[in-house]
């Protein structure tokens, strides 16, 4: 068992599951989407990104790229949230669809990342 593999695998998969948890639910009903879950998804995504840093292989670079995509999408959705709630002051309901769809984009990137990660693990003989 490789401790590093456990840690990075844990965070990569957790990033995906948290992201899914946030996105899951009616897109028009904001009660289905918890802000805490978005926060957790962002933090875990950041951690996953940092863990992927420094791998010089081809696969490592692509993994890093997927993580960066997810980060950007999640940050964008958080920014939309903050702006619509505190800056524009028109309530969350009108931007709910935008926030959730941005997060779903991040989910796709996270899924790609997990698939690549699994593929690499299956290929490894040790």
């Amino acid at each position: 068992m490789n401790a590093q593999k456990v840690i990075s695998g844990f965070f990569i998969i957790l990033a995906m599951t948290l992201n899914f948890g946030f996105v899951y639910g009616d897109i028009n009903n904001f009660a289905h989407h918890s802000p805490y879950e978005l926060f957790a998804a962002i933090v875990v995504n950041f951690i996953a990104t940092v863990l992927k840093l420094g791998d010089k292989t081809q696969l490592g670079s692509v993994l890093l790229a997927t993580s960066l995509v997810a980060d950007i999408q999640l940050i964008a959705s958080a920014i939309v949230w903050a702006v619509s709630l505190y800056v524009a002051n028109h309530g969350i309901a009108s931007s709910a669809q935008v926030i959730v769809s941005l997060a779903s984009g991040a989910l796709l990137a996270n899924i790609v990342s997990v698939i690549l990660f699994m593929g690499d693990t299956l290929k490894s003989k040790r």
């Binding site: 933090v43 950041f46 951690i47 940092v50 863990l51 840093l53 420094g54």
Partner: peptide, 15 residues
């Protein structure tokens, strides 16, 4: 690469 590898732990701690 040198910068990234050295900054990994500090970044994790901050996050």
């Amino acid at each position: 690469w040198i910068v990234i590898r050295r900054m990994r732990t500090p970044l994790l701690v901050i996050i």
